[in-house]
Design a protein around this nucleic acid. Sequence first.
DNA 1: TTAAAAAATGTAAGCGCTTACATTCAGCTC
DNA 2: GAGCTGAATGTAAGCGCTTACATTTTTTAA
Lengths: 343, 343
Amino acid sequence: MTNNTKDNGVPTLADVANYANVSTATVSRCLNSPERVGENTRKRVMKAVRDLGYAPNFGAQALAARQTNTVAAVIPTMENAVFARGLQAFQEELGRHGKTLLVASSAYNAELEEQQVRALVARGADGILLIGYDRTPEIYEFLAKQKVPTLIAWSFNPEEPRPAVGFNNRAAMADLARQVIGQGHENIACISAPTASNDRARERVEGIRDAKAKAGQDPKNLTVIETPYGIETGETAFRQVMTNAPQTTAIMCVNDVLAVGALRAAREMGMKVPNDISVTGFDDIEIATLAEPPLTTVHVPHREMGRCAADMLIQILKGDLIGHNLELATEIRIRQSLGPAPH
Amino acid sequence: MTNNTKDNGVPTLADVANYANVSTATVSRCLNSPERVGENTRKRVMKAVRDLGYAPNFGAQALAARQTNTVAAVIPTMENAVFARGLQAFQEELGRHGKTLLVASSAYNAELEEQQVRALVARGADGILLIGYDRTPEIYEFLAKQKVPTLIAWSFNPEEPRPAVGFNNRAAMADLARQVIGQGHENIACISAPTASNDRARERVEGIRDAKAKAGQDPKNLTVIETPYGIETGETAFRQVMTNAPQTTAIMCVNDVLAVGALRAAREMGMKVPNDISVTGFDDIEIATLAEPPLTTVHVPHREMGRCAADMLIQILKGDLIGHNLELATEIRIRQSLGPAPH
DNA sequence: TTAAAAAATGTAAGCGCTTACATTCAGCTC
DNA sequence: GAGCTGAATGTAAGCGCTTACATTTTTTAA
């Protein structure tokens, strides 16, 4: 046995240096800035790397170079197709730039989110992606103190100073509400996700109020039911609406999944959509077109958002602070679930 | 300014030690095995940690402790709900054990998968989760050489020696096929994902053949169309089947998404499901129940698989090599998309 | 009271890499 | 050929933490 690899298995930089008869500095340079090394030497070193099956030790590299090339994301859940898509694109783009993705999910729970953020930062994330603006100041302070660049996604509010890539939830929902109102609906109800620590949901609800106000309707006069994410919860919420406010002719849901639940409940209750009642969603995920009838909704470019988020975060990490804020456009998709108000 | 934190910002263990008037070893012990430190000292140190806002440096910790507490997963794509769910559960369970998840996706591309595996290992993954058995020996060798414990998920083959948690794709599909054949179908076609480097798809197709053989039908006589993942591709494949083999009365798809595409194509072509043709899926994701008509499919416990995968990997990392193989049960879900063969 | 055992804490040697700085040496210029 | 320049390479000092081992303090037992 040679004196390489210290007999314990995994070869180190020193083993490679030894094998190639150069110093560790040269090997390191070969790997990180090959142009600074003579051609012959480089070839010899590369051969050594291959022969030995060398791979750099991550911890050592991170320690010495003070960065991990790792980016973290904390999302509510991957089971929501919206985030799965965005995250997929985010990861792909990150990969293209040699960065790796660390993920955790908060289950829409602020406290858990805080833990996750801390854990990921402790894992050496160079930067972090967070969903929406809403969270305790403690997290933001922590991030600032640890000097971890942070990007917000899925929300965009021109008045917020933080770097963000997203869309104007409020304006988008207001647009959609305008369409609904345009169909003659006056008794609108809204099925929302819990708004307590979710600015996206909150803004969407406000968007409906904005549109109502603009149309001369009383913005206070809006039935809102809050319920967790899920098809079943959407069903239950629909029933609740019909009990509390039977005169309702249009139900606007803050996401497609709740809307699909509403659609299902309507069918079970023998109500025809859109003849008896109209239903709208938000996100435009696959089930929106699959639903019976297909769902009128707001199309959100989730993939693009993920990709842009990655690009922006990379920019920020590089120190290029340009383009700190990016607003993406959404689009109303009118489908059969919206019809004129019955009279 | 005190002589803490070296003026450069982030506090280190030494700063904490200094502030609390103990050695770095004591601080380290406070953090990692508090029971080995006297109560007063511990309190003092913890206060110092809080006062200084100390957080351990990941690289240093990884380097010194020779582990990152990070586990990696390479999945085909998060956009497939099946993996999104499993991964979500995987991550949750990992989190419960203080581990963090690194993810990458291969887009069902073997070469890309290899790169991703290397990248993740280079990022210090202590262990890795891979989907299915199929991949080049090089990857397995690399993993072995780097001593990275590996777990296979979504497949389970008692004859394979590698640790795995999954289900018997072949048997499950054979079960479903038996039901189809039981409805009198003889001209069965299959819409499959590309089988080249996907043992799950391959096994499912073989499962159909098994059932045919068992029922006295010729297993060779099975129309198989391979197509990438997607609703649209499922539609196209359906049309292809009806062109190539118009006598087909049942189409078995290797996943729900392709099946939904088939369903849609059938509707567009004016064929009634299940009167004119039966369609089945595999996975039992949400859209299976949402589809019109609801899809007969194989229910796979994706979440449970994710959770078990995490548990097993953690066991393996600990060195407990027990329970090296885990087979999960699947279940046939008969819904309206399957009916008797027309005569 | 005292020695031995146990508990608490300290000392310091790495972990494997990057990089500032030092050295060597070939190729120039004059 | 002396002096200079710049490319190629080497030397060695950390990076911030863990942990084996040494030392000190406290507890226990006889």
